[in-house]
Amino acid sequence: MTSTGTEASAADRDETRFEEQFDATIAKDQRIEPRDWMPDGYRKTLIRQIAQHAHSEIIGMQPEGDWITRAPSLRRKAILFAKVQDEAGHGLYLYSAAETLGADRAELTEALIEGRQKYSSIFNYPTPTFADVGVIGWFVDGAAICNQVPLCRCSYGPYARAMVRVCKEESFHQRQGFELLLTMMRGTDAQRAMVQDAVDRWWWPSLMMFGPPDDDSPNSARSMAWKIKRHSNDELRQRFVDMTVPQAAKLGVTLPDPELSWNEERGHHDFGTPDWSELQRVIKGDGPRNAERVSRRRAAHEEGAWVREAATAHAAKQAARTKQTEGAAA
C-alpha cells in the first residue's frame, strides 16, 4: 500500500497538533499521562531514567541486605529488613511506571543483567562494616531524596506519583540511618571509629550520585525542558552538601574534604571537586563490586526461572479448567 500525499500531510497536521498540545501541557505544569501523545524522545528518555532508577533500587538491596542476617540487635535487624523490603517495593512501583510507557519488566531485567542498562554507581561500593548501613541511610538515601523530591513534580504522572511514596519512605530511611549513627557515636571508641571510617569512604561517592558537573551533562538540558528534571546536577549537589554539613556537626564526625567551608557571600558551603575519573571508571563497570552485584541479580533471576514458569503454567491450566467448566455448564 502506498500513502497518498494528502494522507501524509493529514498525518503531519495531526502530529503537529499533538505536539502543540503536549508542549502546552508541559508549559502549564500539568501532567502527561500514559495514554496521552508524547514525543518518542520523551518516552525513551523516561523509560531509560525510570528503568535505571528501578534497577538502582533492586541492586541497592544488596549492599545493605548483606547485613540483615548479622544486624547486632533485633531492633536494628527489623529496621534494616523493613528498609530493604521497601527498596524491593520501590523497584516494583518504578517498573510498573515504566510499563505504563510500553516497557516490559522482564525485558528491563534482561537489560540489567546483560549490562545494557545502568544503575546508580554508588551501589558498586562495598559495605565492610555495620556502620555502612547507617552511612548509606544518611548519605545515600539523603542524596537520593535531594534527587527525587523534585521528581514528585516531574511532568510524567505515573513517575511523579510513584516518587511521592518513594520519597516518604526514603526520608524515613534517612532518619533511621542517622539515628543508628547517633547511637553508635554515643557507644564505644570502636563504634565511633567505625562510623568515621564509613563516612570517609562514602562521602565522595555520595557527591557523585548527582551525576557529572553541569557543563559535562549532555542530556540534562532536554530533560529540564521537558520538566522531567527540575534542578541541575550541581544545584542538587549543593543542596545535599548544605543539608549534610550541620548534620555531620551534630553527629560529631568529620567530612573528608579540607576545602569544605561556609561561604557567607554565596549563602552556601564551598566544597572540593570529586574525582570524576573515578565516577567514569565505576560507571564503565570497573568499580569495586560491579561484577558481583550484577552476577547476583542474574543468579536470582535465572535460579527463579522455574518458579516463574510454574506460576505461568498453573495460571494457564487454571484458565483452561475454568473455561472447560463454563463450557460444560453452558
Binding site: M61, Q62, F81, G91
Partner: peptide
C-alpha cells in the same frame, strides 16, 4: 527468610518473604 533477601525468584516474592520474616 532473611537469607532469601535478593535471591527470591520475583520481586513480589522479595516483598512477601521479607514481610513474613518481619
Amino acid at each position: 527468610l532473611a537469607q532469601w533477601c535478593t535471591a527470591a525468584p520475583e520481586l513480589e516474592e522479595e516483598v512477601a518473604l521479607a514481610n513474613i520474616g518481619l
